[in-house]
Amino acid sequence: MDFYFGLIQIIGVHTLLGLSAYCVLLTGQVSLAQAGFFAIGAYVAGMLTVIAQWPLVPALGVSALVAGATACAVGFPALRVKGLMLVVATVAFGEAVRLFFFNFTYQVQAGNIRLGPHGGEGFRQIRYFPENGWTTLDVMLFIWAVVALVMAGLWWLNRSRAGAVLRAVGEDELAAQSTGINITAVKISAMTVGGVIAGIGGGIFAHYTTHIEHVQFGVVLATFAIAYPILGGLSNVFGTLLAVIFIQGFLIEGLRFMGDWRNLLFGGLIVLAMNVRPRGLLDAGAMLALKRLFFSRKERSDA
């Protein structure tokens, strides 16, 4: 079962990454900076548990705060530009973060070994889970408790006035502005929430992979981050989860037995999925159909 628990862990962490991009995408902005926030979360949480010997939960809290604060700070200049220019600006930020960690060394002596980030060679021995006796099941449950909390928060946000404001900005900025919505504040808030979620995701990522290095947080990860919500659909948070299961569970892990053909199929199936479901795997229409199906069954059973 450990294999399946491990896979569910990966799906959980990637769902957090996808949800971080989902928040920003709701406002109509395409951000490739999520990998940068994810990296910040990973390094901060790793340093706190390994070097400062903090417990995991407060370390994740701090990593969320640092990544969120960075996202907020980046949001001000970055969100002054739109469309492709924003994509370029956020890619540049992501690369700047990656290169920072590429050059960042901060190690302390612990017995006969040195612990901490070591530039291009990465940061090893982030072994909080095994050293504290967490089983694969424990880790999986912890990750999914976090994912459930985040999803519940975003679900609530979606159904609240704040969610309507985010969507209004995403649908038509000018119309939203004309109704008195502070566009900059909304975008920055979405970016900050996205940063917080990415920071938590990155912190967990560092602990289940036990080793992090700059190459893991490049453009490919940033692309995956926005691919999840786009492929899954922006109508609700479950679309992102569905897309992560499709990519990580089916395309990457499920097709592993196909060997070299897997990579060819990977791209082909994503293109196919986006053509068949252009508004996402779980778009508003699919949600409506599910609701009808669910409620009509409930009504029948009540009757």
Binding site: G122, Q125, R127, T209, H211, E213
Partner: peptide, 8 residues
């Protein structure tokens, strides 16, 4: 980089 994580 894979060995680092795996051995960890």
């Amino acid at each position: 980089n894979v060995a680092e994580s795996l051995f960890g």
